[in-house]
């Protein structure tokens, strides 16, 4: 309920045309990883906090708030099949409603799995809270 924080590297984001789907997210992660590699830059370190309210991202070095993503805007999360240290989620942009897939590199496969399971738990808790509120 109070949230869990993970230290990850933001690989990047790409637009997707559906809110969910294994093949869709796999293709999106493939694009993000290819772009990140081609750029040659080190991806930025971020602290990703997961709670039933959503995902909050801070820059790990400066502690600057990067983004707050409401749980109601997150449609899907996954650990990529091919890149098994990559955690990704799909969320609807608050600016223009487009769907964005964001990918994060974790130190280990187990960490990527833990992030995905924590987000899934947040989905479940948010759903319970939503039912009660309704």
């Amino acid at each position: 309920l109070e949230g869990m924080t993970f230290n990850l590297r933001h690989l990047g984001m790409t637009l997707v045309d559906q809110p969910k789907g294994e093949d869709l997210s796999a293709a999106a992660v493939k694009r993000i990883v290819a772009t990140a590699k081609a750029s040659g830059k080190k991806s930025e370190k971020v602290a990703l906090k997961v709670s039933p309210q959503g995902i909050v991202l801070h820059d790990s070095l400066t502690n600057k708030l990067l983004e707050k993503v409401s749980i109601y805007r997150i449609s899907y999360c996954t650990v990529d099949k091919l890149h098994d240290k990559v955690f990704a989620y799909i969320a609807q942009s608050t600016l223009n409603g487009t769907l964005e897939c964001h990918a994060y590199l974790c130190s280990k496969r187990k960490v990527a799995q833990a992030v995905a399971l924590t987000v899934a738990q947040a989905f479940t808790v948010a759903f319970e809270l939503w039912q009660v509120a309704k």
């Binding site: 749980i71 109601y72 997150i74 449609s75 996954t78 650990v79 948010a126 939503w130």
Partner: peptide, 18 residues
């Protein structure tokens, strides 16, 4: 092993105002 970890959000696009 073809098992993948992926989850759909049951509250996506839902709000308490619905």
């Amino acid at each position: 092993n073809t098992n993948t970890i992926h989850f759909d959000n049951p509250v996506y696009q839902k709000t308490t105002e619905d």
